[in-house]
């Protein structure tokens, strides 16, 4: 299977997914409001401005994880509806291409979600970001999303491809995403300057996120085809 064909399929799948999201407005009308209300609820639960400011990075990424569950379920519900995934399989396109396309579309959606969440953290939790921090934050969001999407696409394909399996996704996905949560939260802490952290301290964690993303992406490229091929 030639690499250019895989890339072509990936691009087609990704643009199809993003077009569906753009037209259905599920992201803007449902996922983002959900993520926003989670941020507000965190404020109710913790009920202290100082604490909120300090734990804001963790809350941003917890809200991202929750939102990612919704986004991933949505991404594969689209495939299982009308047996679209069967049609893709019958088309004889490489499964690696389908996987990479799903991942790319998920990354875009997650980055949008994180941008909104980070903005909410700035407003609601009163965190500050300087210019260095902003660069770090953007990189963290992209690589963190890559790690989440790379793994979520695999387990999403497994658990959502069939009816009645949706409850399995959080059980499989959340424990596996612990490294991403740890790395992304620490990097974001540095970007926000929480607890006096400096932006420079965050870059090693970004490196860690890149390693996780690469490993999960590699494993997912190998495993996605056999997992969804039923």
């Amino acid at each position: 299977m030639s690499a250019s064909r895989i890339v072509g399929v990936a691009r087609a799948v990704a643009s199809k997914d993003l077009r569906i999201e753009w037209r259905s407005r599920v992201m803007t009308n449902q996922v983002l409001p959900f993520a926003a209300i989670v941020m507000v609820l965190f404020a109710f639960a913790l009920d202290n401005d100082g604490i909120l400011q300090r734990v804001a990075p963790g809350l941003v990424w917890m809200a991202t994880l929750f939102a990612s569950l919704v986004v991933v379920q949505r991404s594969f519900a689209v495939e299982s509806a009308d047996s679209a995934i069967d049609a893709l399989r019958l088309a004889g396109v490489p499964s690696q291409g389908v996987y990479l396309g799903k991942v790319a579309a998920l990354v875009v959606q997650l980055v949008v979600c994180e941008a909104v969440l980070a903005a909410l953290a700035l407003i609601l939790y009163r965190v500050n970001v300087d210019r260095h921090g902003a660069v770090l934050l953007v990189t963290t969001c992209i690589l963190g999303s890559l790690g989440i999407a790379a793994l979520a696409a695999v387990y999403g394909g497994l658990s959502v491809a069939d009816r009645g399996r949706e409850t399995l996704l959080p059980l499989l996905l959340l424990p596996a995403l612990a490294p991403v949560l740890i790395g992304a939260t620490r990097a974001t802490e540095s970007a926000f300057g929480s607890d006096g952290a400096r932006a420079a301290e965050g870059w090693p964690w970004v490196g860690l996120l890149a390693v996780f993303g690469a490993i999960f992406l590699f494993g997912g490229t190998l495993g996605f085809g056999p997992l969804t091929d039923e």
Binding site: P175, A176, P179, I182, F212, I215
Partner: peptide, 11 residues
């Protein structure tokens, strides 16, 4: 098997 060492390392 891939996940567990990663989790352990990050923790």
């Amino acid at each position: 098997v891939i996940e567990i060492p990663l989790v352990h390392f990050s923790v």
